[in-house]
Design a protein around this nucleic acid. Structure first.
Lengths: 241, 241
DNA sequence: ATATGAATATAACTTTGGTTATGCATGCGC
DNA sequence: GCGCATGCATAACCAAAGTTATATTCATAT
């Protein structure tokens, strides 16, 4: 694949937390057997690129593809992949679906995000992913994430872990929202319906509505659309920091 | 997964109208000189894939890259590209910016869309692009579009030409929406309720709902919140007026 | 140990949003 | 002139969003 020169002004500064654990992940099989990746991604052009990246960092068998998590579950059963690369928004973000795919296939997963801000990194981690990469990451970062996961480690944006552990977060400019409320807000901010949010987060429709009610009160907005617009401006700076 | 949200997208997205004109485009230089592409796309992984696709269908020099239209304008001045491949939503959809880039570089352009529905194909064409491809297209279709444009032809989704061409008020970026629909969209984009919109525009609640229904269909969105998010990026320049 | 407060959860109920069928006016091709 | 497409309008109907009351868990301050 051709190299090409980059004329961009790189904003990089993607600070990441890399946690390479002792090689024990399933994919870390003595480092030389070919890996069978399963790529869950609906856009053909991105499938192509992801497959290419994986083949750059490891010896791979021809990858399997799926356009949705449900399709991926079937494929995983048939092909027993060693490594998952999952677009978080193929169809829509689906927390439970992602978790089930990871559990069922018992392979380490790289969560791939269409959006520039790693708002969903925490959820991806909670769903069992071993790594997170936004499509806005530089290719080197992308490769580093894949490599780390293949080697049995983990690779997430810096603030992903800490924020979840303790809700006594004095630091975060969190608008006074609880972690769960933030999860819901992030979903609102990508245009998901209440039912989709409920499915994604594994809670009831009624509970979603309650969280949204609280969010509207706390953010001083009158409906989800206003909240989404606020969140767009609010989440963006928060994440980039 | 349950049998609910299948989101059947782009029923018509694959049927295309191919219009290979007489080879006269600037890129059609005797068919064998290497082409210098300029790729305007903010996601590194997509840049990579697009560059790869172009190199598959034509002999290319190393491509230039830009993350935004303004950056692209500078690069075009310095590198004089033969072929533009422009993501319509790098930063946000910018009709005038796209047109200026195409005029300034005097190179044929392939408009590349992040979204599954070719809602923006008409606008891309009106802005001077020679081809349109959604990232949800199969790679073969993608290659066909690029090839057609390189050879001096055009390649757009079928319904693009007729329906959109006749609009007389070609003043601004209008998303293919009628004036009234634009009024309503602007209201949605600031979080107004249907009743507020009705009062504000002096029409009935039912009429507002009809307009919104049409807007959702034309923009390929599923609810007002998604529409607002799109509009937020798309109206950004316009909305001040 | 126990009262307090905050976060999470659920369901019944009301309001708003989104869909569909239909009618009327204007502009354009034949 | 006439047919026909298009934009604007309306209301009835069903689905989704938003509100309210209530219960459970858990940390922590009396």
């Amino acid at each position: 694949m051709n190299g090409g020169l980059e004329l961009t002004v790189g904003d990089d500064a993607r600070r990441v937390e890399k946690t390479v654990g002792p090689s024990e992940g399933r994919a870390a099989k003595s480092a030389r057997a070919p890996i069978t990746p399963l790529i869950v991604e609906e856009k053909p052009i991105c499938r192509h690129a992801i497959a290419d990246l994986v083949s750059e960092v490891a010896l791979t068998a021809p990858p399997s593809f799926a356009s949705s998590l449900s399709e991926a579950l079937k494929v995983a059963g048939a092909r027993a992949p060693d490594l998952l690369l999952v677009d978080l928004f193929s169809v829509s973000f689906d927390f439970d679906g992602l978790r089930r795919l990871i559990l069922a296939s018992r392979a380490p997963a790289v969560a791939i995000d269409d959006r520039p801000n790693p708002s969903f990194a925490g959820l991806a981690r909670m769903a069992g992913a071993q790594g997170y990469a936004s499509k806005n990451y530089e290719l080197d970062t992308f490769r580093a994430v894949i490599r780390a996961v293949i080697e049995g480690g983990a690779h997430f944006p810096r603030e992903t872990s800490a924020a979840r552990q303790r809700r006594t977060d004095v630091s975060g400019p969190s608008l006074g929202l609880s972690p769960r409320q933030m999860d819901v807000l992030k979903c609102i901010a990508v245009g998901m319906s209440n039912q989709q949010i409920a499915t994604s987060l594994g809670i009831t429709l009624g509970t979603v509505k309650l969280h949204i009610h609280a969010i509207l009160r706390l953010t001083g907005t009158r409906n989800r659309t206003e909240a989404a617009l606020i969140a767009g401006r609010f989440l963006a700076p928060t994440i980039e920091d």
